[in-house]
Design a protein around this nucleic acid. Structure first.
Length: 306
DNA sequence: AAGACGAAAGTGGTTGA
DNA sequence: TCAACAACTTTCGTCTT
């Protein structure tokens, strides 16, 4: 899945761009806006089909990355060159190293190649930043090395790794959204996610509702004031410890709903529920709690009268 | 007629014995 | 390993605007 990219400045829409290969930047000639584009194409040229072809297809050096099966470093113990100048014991060492190298690069690595390609595809589909993708790649690698992929589908582990990476970086992606990108259901992903987290000892911080507010709000076309209002509500609610144990998306949704009411930007529970991926009932429950515990009833009434 | 509200029953996951 | 439990969902009927 390769997106066709039309290079255009997001600031001034000018198509006159200047790319600086050394710096790895693309700059708009008109307004100077720095457009980050993938100037280095990781996907094609560095691919190896067999160890023989590898040497001819490979170029010098792509940056180190966990999203390639060999982390982007394709160093080989060489065959040509100064071997004859070595003394026998050195030479034996070189042979030993070569042997090990081919051994290492067969079983797990092959799986990694496919998995990481898949991972990148999904990441770009979900608009996940490259740091998080790297993280996901690393998680997958560790999982694969521990043999955790055995017995479950590769996709589910990839999905789990992505989800875990997102959680770690506080990038709000719900399980729903990730499962949409895969031919897998939510349950499956959740299960493998928990499994690999436990096995790898990854500390999972519960996501905070704030992480979701921004994104839900933009899907609902809410004003910035409403968003900050929602943030405020969540903060108060968190301080009063009425949010613990509750699903963060539900809280985010309810806070947005309340904030929308207060600022006269009325949204229906249905609308909010849909973008947040929860039901109206959940919103109602959280909403009720928020009103009670934060004493917002009066404010709501006031807003209604206007 | 649409949206808000609430009750009741069901689901999947966590926890503690 | 199993049962109790909390959060959340689904469904459906009623009230409000």
């Amino acid at each position: 899945m390769k997106k066709k990219t039309v290079f255009k400045c997001p600031e001034c829409k000018s198509q006159k761009l200047k790319s600086d290969k050394k710096k790895g930047e693309t700059i708009c000639k008109k307004c100077g806006f720095v457009i980050e584009e993938e100037l280095i194409d990781f996907s094609q040229e560095w691919r190896e089909f067999s160890s023989d072809q590898g040497d001819s297809a490979r170029r010098v050096g792509s940056p180190i990355t966990f999203t390639k099966h060999d982390q982007g470093l394709s160093t080989r113990v060489g065959t040509a060159g100064d071997l004859s100048k070595m003394n026998p014991s050195e030479r034996r060492n070189v042979f030993k190293m070569r042997k090990w190298q081919t051994r290492i690069s067969t079983p797990i690595e092959r799986n990694l190649k496919f998995a990481l390609a898949e991972l990148k595809r999904i990441s770009s589909f979900l608009d996940i930043s490259s740091v998080a993708t790297e993280e996901a790649g690393m998680i997958y690698r560790r999982a694969a090395e521990k043999g955790l992929v055995r017995g479950r589908s590769m996709e589910s582990v990839v999905a789990g790794a992505i989800y875990a990476a997102c959680r770690r970086y506080g990038i709000p992606r719900t399980l729903d959204e990730i499962s949409n990108a895969f031919p897998l259901d939510k349950k499956e992903i959740g299960k493998t996610y928990r499994f690999i987290c436990r096995q790898l000892g990854i500390r999972i911080l519960p996501t905070s509702p704030q992480d979701y507010v921004q994104r839900f709000a933009s899907e609902l076309n809410l004003k910035p004031e409403t968003v900050s209002k929602a943030m405020e509500i969540i903060k108060k609610a968190t301080d009063m410890e009425i949010t613990s144990g509750k699903g963060p998306t539900g809280i985010a949704a309810a806070a947005l709903y309340v904030a929308a009411l207060l600022s006269g930007e009325k949204k229906t529970q249905r609308e909010v529920a849909d973008v947040a991926g929860v039901t109206e009932v959940t919103i109602r429950n959280r909403y009720k709690e928020l009103l009670e515990k934060l004493g917002l009833e009066d404010e709501i009434k006031k807003a209604r009268d206007i």
